[in-house]
Design a protein around this nucleic acid. Structure first.
Length: 427
RNA sequence: GUGGCCGUAGCUCAACAGGUAGAGCACCGGAUUGUGACUCCGGAGGUAGCGGGUUCAAGACCCGUCGGCCACCCCA
């Protein structure tokens, strides 16, 4: 192995996998457009302060997972660990908030974590953000849009929607205090991680995977008892809307989010088919963030999808994508034949841009070129060799069935080639 | 950051109670003069992740290091 390797956790996406990515990306773009969302393109690097102020100073992301560096001016920059902060910043800076906005974006995110299945250091998200609407019909729309996307992708049966409300900032603060007080009476019985979280981020203890900790939580005060009336009403309305639309969900009272800016509705789409990293899409409301970052008070909801995880699911479920492949492989033996072929093939590409034609390069015998043609997966080989050059013709050879039938090999006049190809490929 | 498993040809993997490596697939060429797939024949390809140690001898044992996978953690 060479010493020049990709950086740990930043993997190449190889030709085998790109069809899944293309299928996912084009489906996402179509579904989002069908709901009237507009794409926004954002920088990968932002000032470090943006993430500290939005994600939260004491979160793991900010404390130990960001790629932060000083630029040549000595200003602290960070490779974005998530997309919401940058999107909110842009919306404020570019005055996009004078009316309600529905935005989406996609691209790489960076988090310094130990790689494992469904988790890379450079990973890709599609993020969707809606600004300016405070009512739960907006929350419902976002969730419906997700459901439609799963349906279009063929993943409906692999994902489950979990829903919760974490209430207003004040309600959460009160609950947090009560939870800490309760847990402090059981500190010794808590697992090591949860003891640490008790000080840093106590709400995260709620979704601990430790069974003993979960047992202690059974008698802990419940968040639902601390909710403000508005959060409670919005949550039940959201549930009704989802029922009307026929979207199944389960209420998970221990579902919280790791980023500080969330309030009220939070949700996760979860799968059990990817091992430990089962959250494929997650989001919620963040009504305070715009103002917190210096904008006019603006309610907002959004979510992000993990593209790697969705690609893994597509592969796991063996969901067919449009394999790239080629239609025609062009064989030419000898320099004169190559010239004839080149001119003819370029003409055909011009006349039929959708036809996928690969022209053999690098010479070789007729036999070896036809072998390559076969291995290319093409349906048809076009052959130019001595006889064809002399006669000004071309031989069309079928390599496999196309549209259920297989044509006989035949030699035709150059002038008929374009029409003959149209006969085989009814694109 | 912590833990478990792993690191032999491009890929998937073998061998041997420690004695200087092998298969399948893939690749290249050939099986009479212009034709792929099946078959047959031949060829190329590895200083065993890297560094140290034990030993007459190490791919096999030990230590370190780098890398991979999975889990904890974190989160999409």
């Amino acid at each position: 192995m060479s010493e020049l390797r990709a950086i740990r956790g930043m993997s190449d996406i190889l030709p085998d996998e790109t069809p899944y990515w293309q299928f996912l990306e084009s489906t996402v773009a179509t579904v989002l457009a069908s709901y009237g969302y507009s794409e926004i393109r954002l920088p990968v690097v932002e000032k470090t302060a943006l993430f500290k102020r939005s994600i939260g100073e004491v979160t793991d992301i900010v404390e130990k997972e960001m790629y932060t560096f000083d630029d040549r001016n000595g200003d602290s920059m960070t490779l974005r660990p998530e997309g919401t902060a940058g999107c909110v910043r842009a919306a404020i800076q570019q005055n996009l908030l004078s009316t309600a906005r529905r935005l989406w974006y996609t691209g790489p995110m960076f988090r310094y974590e130990r790689p494992q299945k469904g988790r890379q250091r450079q990973f890709h998200q599609v993020g969707v953000e809606s600004f300016g609407v405070a009512t739960p019909d907006m929350d419902a729309e976002l969730i419906l849009m997700c459901a439609r996307l799963w349906q279009q992708l063929g993943l409906t049966d692999c994902v489950e929607l979990q829903l919760n409300t974490i209430g207003s900032v004040q309600a959460r603060g009160a609950y947090r205090a009560a939870l800490v007080e309760y847990l402090q009476g059981h500190v010794d019985a808590l697992d090591e991680d949860s003891q640490r979280r008790l000080l840093a981020n106590p709400l995260r203890i709620l979704d601990s995977k430790n069974a003993d900790t979960q047992a202690i939580l059974d008698d802990a005060p419940g968040l639902e008892d601390f909710l403000d009336d508005e959060s409670r009403a919005d949550f039940s309305q959201l549930g009704e809307l989802l029922q009307v639309a026929g979207v199944n969900f389960v209420v998970n009272r221990r579902l919280v989010r790791g980023l500080d800016y969330y309030n009220k509705t939070v949700f996760e789409w979860v799968t059990n088919k990817l091992g430990a990293q089962g959250t494929v899409c997650a989001g919620g409301r963040y009504d305070g963030l715009v103002q917190q970052l210096g904008g006019k008070a603006t309610p907002a909801v959004g979510f992000a999808m993990g593209m790697e995880r969705l690609v893994l699911l597509l592969q796991e479920e063996k969901i067919a994508t449009n394999a790239p492949g080629i239609d025609v492989y062009v064989v030419a033996v000898g320099a004169e034949a190559y010239r004839m072929a080149l001119a003819a093939v370029e003409r055909i590409r011009g006349a039929n841009p959708k036809l996928r034609i690969m022209q053999h390069t690098g010479g070789g015998s007729l036999k070896s070129q036809i072998k390559k043609a076969d291995k290319s997966g093409a349906h048809v080989a076009l052959i130019w060799a001595e006889d064809e050059v002399a006669a000004g013709s071309v031989t069309m050879k079928s390599l496999r069935e196309s549209n259920g039938e297989r044509i006989e090999q035949r030699t035709i006049a150059m002038g008929e080639l374009e029409q003959a190809l149209r006969g085989v490929f009814a694109h």
